[in-house]
Nucleic acid binder design. Sequence first.
DNA 1: CTCAGCCA
DNA 2: TGGCTGAGG
Length: 395
Amino acid sequence: MGIKQLYQVIKDECPDAYKEGEIKNQFGRKVAIDASMSIYSFLIAVRSGGEMLTNEDGETTSHLMGMFYRTLRIVDNGIKPLYVFDGAPPKLKSGELAKRFQRKATATEGLEEAKETGTAEDIEKFSRRTVRVTREHNAECQRLLKLMGIPYLIAPTEAEAQCAVLARAGKVYAAASEDMDTLCFDSPVLLRHLTFSEQRKEPIQEIFLEKVLAGLDMDRKQFVDLCILLGCDYLDPIPKVGPHTALKLIREYKTLENFVEAVQNDPKSKYTIPEDWPFADARELFLNPDVRPADAPECEFKWEAPDIDGLIQFLVTDKGFSEDRVRAGAARLQKNLKTSQQARLEGFFKPIPKTEAEIKNLKRKNDEKNEEKKKRLKEEKKEKAKAKSKPRGGG
DNA sequence: CTCAGCCA
DNA sequence: TGGCTGAGG
C-alpha cells in the first residue's frame, strides 16, 4: 500500500530529490529489505496455473522460490542484502488489520461462490486476495537466508521502520522498498524497483529524503503530516483530498491539528474528517516507531559463505527443488562473496579522494542536470495540461 | 517471482 | 543480444 501519490508529489515538486538508474549503479552497496513484504509478493506472484507452488506433501514453496532466486539476483549485482522481518504489529495498526481481515473474509466467501459459478480467472483472482504471510513462511525464509549466508534481523514491530534506522545510522546505504512509507520513517535514501527493474524495463528509483524536504520546504513533521493527508496505511483517507490539495492544506495550515480544527469549526467546510481519525497516533508511529537502535547487538549482521549441504537438505530433500539449480545457486553465492572481497581489497568501497576543483565541477554538472530535469518535467506537464484542457470553458 | 531455452 | 514462453515445486 504505502502513501498514495507521494511519488507524484515528489516528481512534481522536487525533481532533484530522486535519480533513476540501472541496478549496476548499486554495486557494492548494502541495502535493508523488508522481508515480510517480499514474502507477501512472492506468495501472490510465484504461481503455476494460478496455484502456489508446493512440494510433494502439498507444502507451499512459492515464498522459498522467490526469496532464493531474488536474493541470488541481488547478490549477482554486487548488492549486499540484509532482510528485516516484521515483529508484532503496532497497536494502532490493529484497526487497519481488522479491516484487512474483513476484506479477507469477504474474499473467502467470494472464493466459495466463484468456485461454484465463476470462471477459472475469477477463482484465481479471489485466491490471490486471501494471501497472508504466516509465522511458518517467515520462519522458513529465515532458515533459508541463514543457509544462504545472508543476514537478517527481526524488528520489534514494523520492518520498514527498522530498515530506516539502519540506513539513517549508515549501517546500510538505503532501505529498499516499493513502499513510500519508508521515507516517513526517516530513511535518508529509498530504493524502489530494486528487483523488478531488470526483468521489466523500469529504472531503479533512488529517492533522497533530505532533498525531498528541501524541495517541499518542510520539516520532517510537516512531511509526515503531508503523507498522512495523502493517505497512509494507518488511517482512512479524507474524501476530496488528493496530492494537490494535501500539499496546499499543509502549506496553509502547517499542522494537522490546525487543519482538523479549522474543518470542525467551519460547518460549511468542504472536507469531512472521518469518524475515527487518530492522526496524532499515526504521526507518532512514524516519528517514534518502536525500533531497535542501530548500535544494539541485535542489529549486528554479516554476510557469510553458504551452507551447501544445508541448502540441499532443506530445498532439495525437504522441499523438492532441483538439486542442479540449488547447487548452481550456491555457487553463485560463493562466487559473489569472493568478488566482493576482491573489490574491497582493491579499494572499490573507499571513497575516491577529490580535489576542490573536481568537487566544484561535479557540483556544477549536477546543478545543470537538475535544471534540465526541471525544464523537461515542466514541459511534460504543460503538454499534459494542453491535452487535458477542454476547447472552451466559458467565463 | 526468476530461470532456462528457443527463436528472430 | 533480447524478447517471449513455459516450467519451476
